[in-house]
Computed example of a mutant assay.
Amino acid sequence: MTGPGLVIFDNDGVLVDSERLANGILAELLTEAGLPYTFEETVRDFMGGSMVSMRQKAEAKLGSPLPVDLEDRYHERLFAGFAELQPVPGVREVLDRLDADGIRYCLASSGTHRRIHTALTTVGFWDRFEGRIFSAEDVAHGKPAPDLFLHATNTMGVKPADCVVVEDSPLGVAAANAAGMRVFGYAAMTDPAKLTEATAVFHNMTALPGLISAT
């Protein structure tokens, strides 16, 4: 398989099957804080963004500060749920294919380094990404700004035009486009209509190697 100089994976919902858990917990906490939210609404408004951007958006809607410990309680519930965390179906085989063909890859996520480490360790992917992990904590502006992806490519020594990004959120797609990278939108949980700005949209990880090889 031929391919790009670097494949950049989002983490939640692309490598680890955590989005349903994470968005359900966030909806519960926001509702408890006086800002009623459903699971579907948290997906719509916050999926793919950092906790910093979530707080800014939620407080603007609420008109007052959220509890100072909301993020701590979010991660406490999230990490408890991670005991049952699984890889996204088919992504292990995608990584095996990239390894076999010598295509470099890394991870760039809106999650914290602690969240990324916990998730990857749980599903057995830590060794595959160690030393090639980039978090929104590393940059001034998270997705949809291009900063995180550009930080990753600069560190990895690859030109943005030679990279492809695998994302499942509109914020991530926007960030990849702003960085001048091709981006494949994974629509397993996301409405495909919200990923139309991606270079291509796919619904099953079995399709990803073909998309990568065609770049």
Rank of each mutant, 00 (worst) to 15 (best):
Thr196Trp: 00
Pro146Trp: 03
Val201Ser: 07
Leu66Ile: 08
Ile133Pro: 12
Gly90Gln: 08
Asp12His: 00
Ala161Val: 05
Gln86Trp: 05
Ala198Val: 10
Glu130Asp: 13
Thr118Pro: 01
Arg114Leu: 15
Ile133Val: 15
Thr2Asp: 12
Ala58Thr: 09
Ala175Val: 02
Ala83Trp: 10
Thr122Leu: 07
His113Leu: 08
Thr112Glu: 03
Glu167Gly: 07
Pro160Arg: 01
Glu32Asn: 12
Ala80Cys: 02
Ala175His: 01
Pro67Asp: 04
Val52Asp: 11
Cys163Phe: 06
Thr42Lys: 10
Ala178Phe: 04
Ser109Met: 00
Gly63Trp: 06
Gly48Cys: 00
Pro87Gln: 08
Phe134Ser: 08
Thr122Gly: 01
Asn23Ile: 04
Cys163Ile: 10
Val94Asp: 13
Pro146Lys: 04
Ala136Tyr: 05
Asp162Gly: 00
Lys57Glu: 13
Met156Lys: 02
Leu62Ser: 01
Gly13Met: 09
Ala22Phe: 05
Ile133Tyr: 09
Asp162Asn: 11
Arg182Thr: 12
Thr199Leu: 01
Ala145Trp: 01
Arg55Ala: 14
Ile133Ala: 11
Val158Met: 06
Gly63Glu: 08
Lys159Phe: 11
Thr190Leu: 04
Ser135Met: 09
Thr122Lys: 15
Ser169Phe: 04
Arg73Tyr: 07
Asn23Phe: 13
Ser53Cys: 00
Glu19Leu: 07
Ser213Lys: 12
Ala80His: 11
Gly142Asn: 03
Asp147Met: 08
Leu6Tyr: 05
Leu98Asn: 07
Asp168Tyr: 09
Gly142Thr: 01
Gly5Tyr: 05
Leu70Ser: 06
Leu62Asn: 01
Leu66Trp: 01
Thr38Gln: 14
Leu95Ile: 15
Ala174Ser: 14
Ala22Tyr: 12
Ser169Cys: 08
Asn11Arg: 03
Pro89Phe: 08
Asp45Trp: 07
Val166Ala: 02
Trp126Met: 14
Cys163Glu: 00
Val52His: 10
Pro65Ser: 11
Asn11Gly: 06
His141Asn: 15
Thr155Cys: 15
Ala80Gly: 03
His203Asn: 09
Ala200Gly: 07
Asn204Thr: 14
Ser135Glu: 11
Ala198Trp: 02
Arg44His: 14
His113Glu: 06
Gly13Arg: 02
Glu28His: 13
Ala214His: 10
Ile212Thr: 06
Pro170Ser: 03
Gly13Lys: 03
Thr38Arg: 15
Ala33Thr: 05
Asp101Trp: 11
Phe129Lys: 09
Ser53Ile: 04
Thr38Ile: 08
Lys57Ser: 11
Val94Trp: 07
Phe79Asp: 05
Thr42Glu: 11
Ala80Thr: 12
Phe39Asp: 14
Leu98His: 09
Gly111Asn: 14
Ala58His: 07
Phe134Glu: 11
Glu19Arg: 02
Gly157Pro: 15
Val123Leu: 04
Gly111Trp: 06
Leu107Met: 14
Val123Gly: 03
Asp69Trp: 08
Ala193Gln: 10
Met181Tyr: 11
Ile103Gln: 03
Phe46Ile: 04
His151Phe: 15
Tyr105Trp: 04
Leu15His: 06
Pro160Tyr: 01
Arg55Gly: 05
Ala108His: 10
Gly172Thr: 00
Thr206Asn: 13
Val123Asn: 02
Glu71Ser: 09
Ser50Val: 03
Gln86Lys: 15
Arg115Asp: 13
Ala136Lys: 07
Gly180Pro: 12
Thr121Tyr: 06
Thr31Ile: 10
Ala188Val: 13
His117Lys: 13
Glu59Thr: 06
Glu19Ala: 09
